[in-house]
Amino acid sequence: MLSITPDTVVLGTARKSVITAGFSPVADDARAINGTVGDITSADPRMTARNVNVYYGDKLAINNVSLDIGVNEVIAMIGPSGCGKSTFLRCLNRMNDTIDICRVEGEIRLDDQDIYDSGLDVVPLRAQVGMVFQKPNPFPKSIYDNVAYGPRIHGLTSNKNDLDEVVEQALLKAGLWDEVKDRLDEVGTGLSGGQQQRLCIARTIAVAPEVILMDEPCSALDPIATARIEELIDELREQYTIAIVTHSMQQAARVSQRTAYFHLGELVEVGKTDDIFTTPRHRLTEDYITGRFG
Protein backbone atom coordinates (compact mmCIF):
# COMPACT_ATOMS: atom_id res chain seq x y z
CA MET A 1 0.00 0.00 0.00
CA LEU A 2 1.00 3.56 -0.39
CA SER A 3 2.54 5.30 2.53
CA ILE A 4 0.08 7.80 3.86
CA THR A 5 1.41 10.65 5.90
CA PRO A 6 -1.05 11.49 8.65
CA ASP A 7 -0.15 15.12 9.05
CA THR A 8 0.08 16.36 5.56
CA VAL A 9 1.74 19.68 5.31
CA VAL A 10 -0.07 22.06 3.09
CA LEU A 11 2.34 23.03 0.41
CA GLY A 12 2.96 26.67 -0.25
CA THR A 13 1.00 29.45 1.22
CA ALA A 14 -2.72 29.22 1.18
CA ARG A 15 -3.71 32.69 0.27
CA LYS A 16 -7.10 34.22 0.45
CA SER A 17 -8.32 35.02 -2.99
CA VAL A 18 -8.93 38.62 -3.78
CA ILE A 19 -12.01 39.11 -5.80
CA THR A 20 -11.20 41.46 -8.56
CA ALA A 21 -13.43 44.06 -10.06
CA GLY A 22 -16.14 42.53 -12.17
CA PHE A 23 -16.73 39.71 -9.77
CA SER A 24 -19.82 40.38 -7.78
CA PRO A 25 -20.91 37.70 -5.39
CA VAL A 26 -24.59 38.47 -5.51
CA ALA A 27 -26.44 36.01 -3.38
CA ASP A 28 -25.58 36.60 0.23
CA ASP A 29 -27.00 33.25 1.32
CA ALA A 30 -24.38 31.46 -0.76
CA ARG A 31 -21.67 29.66 1.22
CA ALA A 32 -18.71 31.42 -0.26
CA ILE A 33 -15.43 29.64 0.48
CA ASN A 34 -12.37 31.32 -0.98
CA GLY A 35 -14.63 33.52 -2.98
CA THR A 36 -16.37 30.61 -4.63
CA VAL A 37 -20.16 30.76 -4.70
CA GLY A 38 -21.99 27.53 -3.85
CA ASP A 39 -21.11 24.39 -1.95
CA ILE A 40 -17.69 23.11 -2.88
CA THR A 41 -17.96 20.08 -0.63
CA SER A 42 -19.38 16.71 -1.35
CA ALA A 43 -21.08 14.35 1.05
CA ASP A 44 -18.92 11.44 0.04
CA PRO A 45 -15.74 12.89 -1.47
CA ARG A 46 -13.23 10.78 -3.36
CA MET A 47 -10.90 13.66 -4.12
CA THR A 48 -10.61 16.91 -2.25
CA ALA A 49 -8.71 19.95 -3.45
CA ARG A 50 -8.01 22.80 -1.08
CA ASN A 51 -6.49 26.19 -1.86
CA VAL A 52 -4.81 25.05 -5.03
CA ASN A 53 -2.60 27.54 -6.86
CA VAL A 54 -0.87 26.65 -10.12
CA TYR A 55 1.89 28.69 -11.67
CA TYR A 56 3.31 28.50 -15.16
CA GLY A 57 6.65 30.13 -14.54
CA ASP A 58 5.66 33.35 -12.84
CA LYS A 59 2.16 33.37 -14.23
CA LEU A 60 -0.62 32.33 -11.89
CA ALA A 61 -2.88 29.97 -13.85
CA ILE A 62 -5.10 28.66 -11.04
CA ASN A 63 -5.90 30.91 -8.14
CA ASN A 64 -6.89 29.37 -4.83
CA VAL A 65 -9.32 26.72 -6.00
CA SER A 66 -11.00 24.37 -3.56
CA LEU A 67 -13.34 21.62 -4.74
CA ASP A 68 -14.53 18.15 -3.76
CA ILE A 69 -15.18 15.38 -6.23
CA GLY A 70 -17.69 12.88 -4.90
CA VAL A 71 -17.82 9.13 -5.28
CA ASN A 72 -19.72 7.90 -8.28
CA GLU A 73 -20.61 11.35 -9.47
CA VAL A 74 -19.82 13.13 -12.69
CA ILE A 75 -18.57 16.61 -12.07
CA ALA A 76 -18.33 18.92 -15.06
CA MET A 77 -15.93 21.81 -15.23
CA ILE A 78 -16.95 24.56 -17.60
CA GLY A 79 -15.76 28.01 -18.46
CA PRO A 80 -14.36 30.10 -21.29
CA SER A 81 -11.13 28.96 -22.90
CA GLY A 82 -8.02 29.72 -20.90
CA CYS A 83 -9.96 29.73 -17.62
CA GLY A 84 -7.77 27.03 -16.13
CA LYS A 85 -10.28 24.20 -16.05
CA SER A 86 -7.96 21.83 -17.94
CA THR A 87 -5.01 22.88 -15.83
CA PHE A 88 -6.95 22.08 -12.69
CA LEU A 89 -8.01 18.71 -14.11
CA ARG A 90 -4.40 17.83 -14.92
CA CYS A 91 -3.43 18.61 -11.33
CA LEU A 92 -5.67 15.78 -10.15
CA ASN A 93 -3.34 13.06 -11.42
CA ARG A 94 -0.22 15.18 -11.53
CA MET A 95 -0.02 15.25 -15.32
CA ASN A 96 1.29 18.79 -14.89
CA ASP A 97 4.53 17.23 -13.67
CA THR A 98 5.44 16.70 -17.30
CA ILE A 99 5.56 20.46 -17.83
CA ASP A 100 8.85 21.77 -16.49
CA ILE A 101 7.76 25.29 -15.65
CA CYS A 102 4.55 24.26 -13.91
CA ARG A 103 4.37 24.54 -10.11
CA VAL A 104 1.44 23.49 -7.91
CA GLU A 105 0.68 24.78 -4.42
CA GLY A 106 -2.08 23.72 -2.05
CA GLU A 107 -3.46 20.35 -1.11
CA ILE A 108 -5.14 17.71 -3.23
CA ARG A 109 -6.16 14.45 -1.60
CA LEU A 110 -7.25 11.18 -3.11
CA ASP A 111 -9.19 9.41 -0.39
CA ASP A 112 -6.81 10.07 2.49
CA GLN A 113 -3.53 10.64 0.81
CA ASP A 114 -2.04 13.94 -0.27
CA ILE A 115 -1.14 13.38 -3.88
CA TYR A 116 1.44 16.18 -3.84
CA ASP A 117 3.22 14.71 -0.86
CA SER A 118 6.90 14.50 -1.67
CA GLY A 119 6.97 10.80 -0.87
CA LEU A 120 4.09 9.98 -3.15
CA ASP A 121 4.68 7.94 -6.23
CA VAL A 122 2.91 9.15 -9.36
CA VAL A 123 2.85 5.77 -11.03
CA PRO A 124 0.28 4.13 -8.70
CA LEU A 125 -1.50 7.47 -8.42
CA ARG A 126 -2.08 7.55 -12.14
CA ALA A 127 -3.16 3.94 -12.05
CA GLN A 128 -5.85 5.08 -9.62
CA VAL A 129 -6.68 8.32 -11.40
CA GLY A 130 -6.79 7.69 -15.12
CA MET A 131 -7.07 10.30 -17.80
CA VAL A 132 -8.72 10.64 -21.21
CA PHE A 133 -7.40 13.43 -23.40
CA GLN A 134 -8.89 16.03 -25.68
CA LYS A 135 -7.66 14.48 -28.90
CA PRO A 136 -8.02 10.72 -29.22
CA ASN A 137 -4.46 9.46 -28.81
CA PRO A 138 -4.36 5.72 -29.35
CA PHE A 139 -0.86 4.26 -29.61
CA PRO A 140 0.20 3.14 -33.08
CA LYS A 141 -0.33 -0.45 -31.95
CA SER A 142 -3.13 -2.95 -32.35
CA ILE A 143 -6.47 -2.37 -30.65
CA TYR A 144 -5.74 -5.24 -28.29
CA ASP A 145 -2.28 -3.90 -27.39
CA ASN A 146 -3.72 -0.45 -26.78
CA VAL A 147 -6.17 -1.74 -24.19
CA ALA A 148 -3.70 -4.26 -22.77
CA TYR A 149 -1.00 -1.60 -22.35
CA GLY A 150 -2.03 -0.52 -18.84
CA PRO A 151 -2.63 -4.02 -17.41
CA ARG A 152 0.68 -5.14 -18.90
CA ILE A 153 2.88 -2.39 -17.53
CA HIS A 154 1.22 -2.58 -14.13
CA GLY A 155 1.36 -6.37 -14.10
CA LEU A 156 -2.37 -6.62 -13.35
CA THR A 157 -2.86 -10.00 -14.92
CA SER A 158 -0.79 -13.08 -14.58
CA ASN A 159 -1.75 -14.97 -17.71
CA LYS A 160 -3.00 -14.47 -21.22
CA ASN A 161 -6.56 -15.56 -20.42
CA ASP A 162 -6.90 -12.99 -17.66
CA LEU A 163 -5.53 -10.33 -19.95
CA ASP A 164 -7.98 -11.29 -22.69
CA GLU A 165 -10.75 -11.05 -20.13
CA VAL A 166 -9.61 -7.62 -18.94
CA VAL A 167 -9.37 -6.34 -22.50
CA GLU A 168 -12.81 -7.68 -23.37
CA GLN A 169 -14.38 -6.23 -20.23
CA ALA A 170 -12.79 -2.84 -20.85
CA LEU A 171 -13.93 -2.77 -24.45
CA LEU A 172 -17.39 -3.90 -23.38
CA LYS A 173 -17.61 -1.15 -20.79
CA ALA A 174 -16.39 1.36 -23.35
CA GLY A 175 -19.11 0.13 -25.69
CA LEU A 176 -16.60 -0.73 -28.38
CA TRP A 177 -16.52 -4.50 -28.12
CA ASP A 178 -19.12 -5.27 -30.74
CA GLU A 179 -17.46 -3.01 -33.25
CA VAL A 180 -13.92 -4.32 -32.87
CA LYS A 181 -14.15 -7.85 -31.49
CA ASP A 182 -13.29 -9.34 -34.89
CA ARG A 183 -10.35 -7.09 -35.57
CA LEU A 184 -8.51 -6.74 -32.32
CA ASP A 185 -5.14 -6.95 -34.03
CA GLU A 186 -5.78 -4.07 -36.37
CA VAL A 187 -4.03 -0.79 -35.68
CA GLY A 188 -5.86 1.46 -33.21
CA THR A 189 -5.12 4.53 -35.25
CA GLY A 190 -7.18 3.08 -38.11
CA LEU A 191 -10.48 3.50 -36.23
CA SER A 192 -12.81 6.46 -36.66
CA GLY A 193 -12.41 9.43 -34.33
CA GLY A 194 -15.26 8.43 -32.02
CA GLN A 195 -14.09 4.83 -31.90
CA GLN A 196 -10.56 6.00 -31.15
CA GLN A 197 -11.80 8.03 -28.21
CA ARG A 198 -13.79 5.08 -26.88
CA LEU A 199 -10.66 2.98 -27.34
CA CYS A 200 -8.78 5.50 -25.22
CA ILE A 201 -11.50 5.27 -22.59
CA ALA A 202 -11.25 1.48 -22.71
CA ARG A 203 -7.50 1.79 -22.32
CA THR A 204 -8.03 3.90 -19.23
CA ILE A 205 -10.63 1.69 -17.58
CA ALA A 206 -8.66 -1.48 -18.31
CA VAL A 207 -6.45 -0.44 -15.38
CA ALA A 208 -9.58 -0.21 -13.16
CA PRO A 209 -8.92 3.27 -11.80
CA GLU A 210 -11.01 4.91 -9.09
CA VAL A 211 -11.28 8.24 -10.84
CA ILE A 212 -11.37 9.03 -14.55
CA LEU A 213 -10.41 12.51 -15.68
CA MET A 214 -11.70 13.55 -19.08
CA ASP A 215 -10.27 16.61 -20.78
CA GLU A 216 -12.82 17.73 -23.38
CA PRO A 217 -13.15 14.17 -24.64
CA CYS A 218 -15.61 15.06 -27.38
CA SER A 219 -14.12 18.24 -28.78
CA ALA A 220 -12.63 16.44 -31.77
CA LEU A 221 -15.70 14.34 -32.48
CA ASP A 222 -18.86 14.66 -34.55
CA PRO A 223 -22.30 14.88 -32.86
CA ILE A 224 -23.16 11.19 -33.21
CA ALA A 225 -19.85 10.04 -31.76
CA THR A 226 -20.28 12.66 -29.04
CA ALA A 227 -23.69 11.27 -28.12
CA ARG A 228 -22.17 7.81 -27.91
CA ILE A 229 -19.43 8.99 -25.51
CA GLU A 230 -21.94 10.90 -23.39
CA GLU A 231 -24.05 7.74 -22.98
CA LEU A 232 -20.90 5.91 -22.05
CA ILE A 233 -19.98 8.47 -19.39
CA ASP A 234 -23.41 8.05 -17.86
CA GLU A 235 -22.97 4.27 -17.73
CA LEU A 236 -19.46 4.50 -16.28
CA ARG A 237 -20.69 6.68 -13.42
CA GLU A 238 -21.97 3.61 -11.58
CA GLN A 239 -18.44 2.29 -11.09
CA TYR A 240 -16.16 5.29 -11.37
CA THR A 241 -15.84 8.83 -10.24
CA ILE A 242 -15.58 11.08 -13.27
CA ALA A 243 -14.39 14.64 -13.65
CA ILE A 244 -14.97 16.07 -17.10
CA VAL A 245 -13.81 19.31 -18.59
CA THR A 246 -16.00 20.54 -21.40
CA HIS A 247 -16.57 23.72 -23.31
CA SER A 248 -20.07 22.61 -24.21
CA MET A 249 -22.68 23.68 -21.64
CA GLN A 250 -25.21 21.31 -23.13
CA GLN A 251 -22.82 18.45 -22.59
CA ALA A 252 -22.22 19.48 -19.01
CA ALA A 253 -25.97 19.65 -18.47
CA ARG A 254 -26.52 16.24 -20.01
CA VAL A 255 -23.83 14.18 -18.31
CA SER A 256 -23.03 15.74 -14.96
CA GLN A 257 -24.57 15.86 -11.51
CA ARG A 258 -22.47 18.78 -10.32
CA THR A 259 -20.98 21.61 -12.29
CA ALA A 260 -18.08 23.93 -11.50
CA TYR A 261 -17.69 27.19 -13.37
CA PHE A 262 -14.15 28.51 -13.81
CA HIS A 263 -13.22 32.01 -14.88
CA LEU A 264 -9.69 33.42 -15.32
CA GLY A 265 -8.14 30.80 -13.09
CA GLU A 266 -10.69 31.13 -10.33
CA LEU A 267 -13.48 28.77 -9.39
CA VAL A 268 -16.46 31.12 -9.53
CA GLU A 269 -19.39 28.88 -8.74
CA VAL A 270 -20.10 25.25 -7.91
CA GLY A 271 -23.42 23.56 -7.50
CA LYS A 272 -25.85 20.93 -8.63
CA THR A 273 -25.92 20.96 -12.39
CA ASP A 274 -29.65 21.65 -12.47
CA ASP A 275 -29.24 24.65 -10.19
CA ILE A 276 -26.28 26.11 -12.06
CA PHE A 277 -28.07 25.99 -15.38
CA THR A 278 -31.44 27.18 -14.15
CA THR A 279 -30.58 29.57 -11.35
CA PRO A 280 -26.95 30.67 -11.46
CA ARG A 281 -26.11 32.79 -8.48
CA HIS A 282 -23.03 34.54 -9.71
CA ARG A 283 -23.32 37.13 -12.44
CA LEU A 284 -20.32 35.74 -14.39
CA THR A 285 -21.89 32.28 -14.40
CA GLU A 286 -25.14 33.72 -15.58
CA ASP A 287 -23.42 35.70 -18.31
CA TYR A 288 -21.58 32.63 -19.49
CA ILE A 289 -24.60 30.37 -19.41
CA THR A 290 -26.79 32.83 -21.18
CA GLY A 291 -24.14 33.16 -23.85
CA ARG A 292 -22.92 36.68 -23.25
CA PHE A 293 -19.33 35.46 -23.60
CA GLY A 294 -17.63 32.21 -24.06
Binding site: D44, H154, L156
Partner: peptide, 23 residues
Protein backbone atom coordinates in the same frame (compact mmCIF):
# COMPACT_ATOMS: atom_id res chain seq x y z
CA UNK B 1 -10.41 4.67 2.07
CA UNK B 2 -13.96 5.50 1.66
CA UNK B 3 -15.66 2.97 -0.45
CA UNK B 4 -13.19 0.52 -1.79
CA UNK B 5 -14.69 -1.51 -4.55
CA UNK B 6 -13.28 -5.00 -4.73
CA UNK B 7 -11.43 -4.73 -8.02
CA UNK B 8 -10.04 -1.33 -7.15
CA UNK B 9 -8.18 -2.68 -4.19
CA UNK B 10 -6.90 -5.37 -6.43
CA UNK B 11 -5.58 -2.85 -8.89
CA UNK B 12 -3.61 -0.78 -6.48
CA UNK B 13 -2.23 -3.83 -4.69
CA UNK B 14 -1.10 -5.37 -7.89
CA UNK B 15 0.45 -2.12 -9.04
CA UNK B 16 2.37 -1.83 -5.82
CA UNK B 17 3.51 -5.43 -6.02
CA UNK B 18 5.62 -4.86 -9.11
CA UNK B 19 6.47 -1.25 -8.45
CA UNK B 20 9.94 -1.79 -7.05
CA UNK B 21 10.95 -3.94 -9.95
CA UNK B 22 9.64 -1.36 -12.40
CA UNK B 23 11.57 1.41 -10.76
Amino acid sequence: MNKPAVDQIRTIDRVNATLKQRY
